[in-house]
Computed example of a mutant assay.
Amino acid sequence: MSRLFRDIAGDPLCADGSVVCIGAFDGLHLGHQALVRQAVARAHVLGVPVVALSFEPLPREFFAADAPPPRLGPVRAKVEGLRALGVDVVGLLRFDARMAAMTPDAFVEQVLVQRLRAREVWVGPGFRFGHRRAGDIVTLHALGETAGFVAGEIVPLVLDGERVSSTRIRAALVAGDFAAAAALLGRPYAVSGRVVHGQRLGRTLGYPTANLRFGGRVPALRGIYATRVRGVEDLTGSAAPWPSVSSFGTRPTVGGVEPLLEAHLFDFDGDLYGRRIEVEFVARLRDEEKFSDLSALVAQMDRDAAQARRLLGPPPESARTRAAPPQAAQRQGFA
């Protein structure tokens, strides 16, 4: 089982050495995956653990605290994705004023050498680090020669003539182009998390929802979507994802503030509180908007649900035989 650490200071985590890859890893797209797989392959050759090193908050969030840039996924999804790729140790270093002021030399000595005993360090194209982004791959090469590690930079991963990047994925999501986002991610865009209690307003409106928080980060998309939910298969008797309509935003009609993902599973009866689910985005229906009253909101929700049903089709046949009437769904498992 892989380990997670947050601090620079402490005893060496990899006493016999390690192979380290460094990146934001937001969304863990195909470019990130190529970087991690390179590090994993080299670690297997050397017989040492592989470490994926990132920061929380991300540097760009720290420097733009009043208007943080959007995230592709919550922190937990990043950690789980890195572990699934074979990473042994995940570092989410606390990026604060002290970290921002750290010189490239100090970062290499304290983190890569003392903490991780790095034997190889791998980064993506254009990597910069240290105070005022003073360090780059050339810096890593030079410091590595003295410290005893080798530094490498993977070649850019290009798709359709452009480099794969989180920026491209965010733009695709904003445009509702989920096919393009999936091509860059190597999988459909989805948000996962544990279902939490909400205000229970959806239940009173006839649209109970399974609610996921986004870890206090700004999501990369906002609006109303046709979605599919995974993680309910044992309750439905079907391996297929469950069709749903979802709202991702702050719920301005009811005075919401925190971004929340609310998924209404069609014709579903079951208790989802505390369960980990994954909401896959299929199509964008409309922007989030503020309505004059709850009646106007419900009328629009009716139209949204009808449109999503047409796009997604009905729940799996085997599961629909177990589905309860709508009033039962309003009683159980949703906020």
Results as ranks from 00 to 15, higher is better:
Phe248Ser: 03
Val48Ser: 07
Glu120Ile: 06
Ala226Tyr: 04
Val191Lys: 06
Ile137Gln: 03
Ser247Leu: 15
Gln332Ser: 10
Asp269Tyr: 14
Arg217Gly: 01
Arg286Asn: 12
Gly144Val: 05
Gly202Thr: 09
Leu311Met: 14
Arg331Ile: 01
Val298Ala: 12
Asp287Gln: 10
Pro315Lys: 12
Glu162Thr: 05
Leu140Lys: 03
Cys21Gly: 00
Gly274Met: 09
Gly10Trp: 13
Val257Ser: 13
Arg132Phe: 05
Arg331Leu: 15
Arg6Ser: 12
Gly206Trp: 11
Lys290Gly: 01
Ile169Gln: 06
Arg128Lys: 10
Thr250Trp: 11
Ile224Met: 15
Ala183Arg: 15
Gly17Ser: 11
Gly124Tyr: 01
Gly135Leu: 06
Ala335Phe: 13
Arg83His: 13
Val79Ala: 04
Val174Trp: 08
Ala15Gly: 02
Ala240Met: 11
His141Leu: 01
Arg133Asp: 02
Ala64Lys: 06
Pro68Gly: 00
Asp11Val: 04
Asp267Gly: 03
Glu278Pro: 02
Ala283Met: 06
Arg128Pro: 02
Ser18Leu: 12
Ala101Cys: 08
Leu85Asn: 00
His32Gly: 05
Trp122Asp: 01
Asp234Asn: 12
Tyr207Arg: 10
Val150Phe: 10
Gln114Lys: 15
Tyr189Phe: 15
Pro325Phe: 09
Val111Glu: 04
Val138Ala: 14
Ala220Trp: 05
Asp160Met: 02
Leu261Tyr: 02
Phe55Glu: 02
Gly313Leu: 04
Asp287Met: 02
Ser292Val: 14
Ala335Met: 02
Gly135Lys: 08
Ala24Arg: 14
Gln110Pro: 00
Leu260Asp: 09
Pro326Gly: 09
Asp302Asn: 15
Ser238Met: 11
Leu53Asp: 02
Pro125Ser: 00
Ala263Pro: 02
Gly198Cys: 07
Val123Asp: 09
Phe95Thr: 01
Gly249Asn: 07
Ser238Phe: 12
Gly23Lys: 09
Met99Asn: 03
Pro156Ala: 08
Ala226Thr: 07
Phe62Gly: 06
Thr253Val: 11
Val90Arg: 02
Gly144Tyr: 02
Phe63Arg: 14
Ser165Arg: 05
Leu46Arg: 15
Gly231Asp: 08
Gly270Val: 07
Ala84Cys: 00
Gln33Trp: 04
Ser54Ala: 13
Gly270Arg: 01
Val50Ser: 00
Val45Ser: 05
Thr204Ser: 15
Gly23Val: 11
Gly202Gln: 12
Pro74Arg: 15
His197Asn: 10
